[in-house]
Design a protein around this nucleic acid. Structure first.
Lengths: 152, 152
DNA sequence: ACTATTTCAGAATAAAAATCTATTTTTATT
DNA sequence: AATAAAAATAGATTTTTATTCTGAAATAGT
């Protein structure tokens, strides 16, 4: 799908604040509310907008201990990888999991309450998974920037 | 603020889909729409819900090349750090920046179109920043899991 | 240039959010 | 345990927003 400048401006608005009304957006774009409405519907239909979510402040809900965890697997057969990936998807503490190039196989982002909770997570959940050769934890000192915004 | 089970269930709903109506949520919780409405307002006022956003599908907008970039600074004086952090915040390609423990100082998540765009970003933007001692790029082979959902 | 298709505007309708009032429930205090 | 105060809830009402509908304008393809 072709995405024009107006679509980009709509996406900019909605990525910043999805509660913005069609009227507000239409004012900014100089279009009618219907035009804006139809464009948004289209962006949704095409899957360009994948979903709308509320973002929760980690500090306010006792989940401000963020750890990056580098994981090596013992083997790299497809079967091993997909088994591992499936299990990772069942761990709510794991906010993100990337299969990456380099010295290790996976980079996990883990979000828990504190160091104790992380130790508990490591011991009772992560390291009980099969085929893990090693893990290395990198602790977040400060969150400098975190965004869901894709610049278009 | 005390956050009870009902609040958690509301947050679960809205973290998954912020377009859910108060009526839908009230049906699930067995509360009135007003009760749900007031609780959501409170969660917003308290900053527990920080914002509502539309999530854009990277593949659909040509931003599916994700790179993790490990950065070491030459010095670690407060002045150097805050200068660096300020400049990072002005780079739209940088979705995330964490100050971390370990072998390097910062971990960046960079989102661009492809390898060429990344090289361009490295050469013209990132490495032109002052005080950078070294960078190491880790390329994402596959996004196994990516979520904004905090399990409560 | 003509037709088909898409995009848009404005009005009308439907749906949801926001407000208001009265009640109920909870919490704190004695 | 009894009472007062505060907070939370329900139902009705109002306001706002989303959605639908119709026709006009712009755009693309032949």
């Amino acid at each position: 799908m072709k995405i024009d400048e107006l679509d980009k401006r709509i996406l900019k608005h909605l990525q910043q604040d999805s509660k913005k009304t069609n009227k507000e957006i239409s004012n900014d774009l100089g279009l009618s509310v219907t035009a804006v409405y139809e464009r948004i519907r289209k962006l949704e239909r095409e899957g360009i907008i994948s979903k709308y979510v509320a973002l929760v402040e980690p500090q306010k809900v006792e989940k401000c201990f963020m750890v990056l965890c580098q994981i090596k697997l013992v083997q790299h057969k497809k079967d091993f990888l997909s088994r591992f990936e499936k299990e990772i998807n069942n761990l709510p503490e794991v906010i993100e999991c990337l299969h990456v190039s380099g010295d290790f196989d996976y980079m996990l982002k883990v979000l828990v309450k504190d160091m104790n909770a992380y130790r508990e997570f490591l011991v009772t959940k992560l390291t009980t998974l099969d085929h893990i050769a090693s893990t290395k934890s990198i602790f977040t000192i400060n969150k400098v920037k975190q965004s869901t915004f894709i610049s278009l």
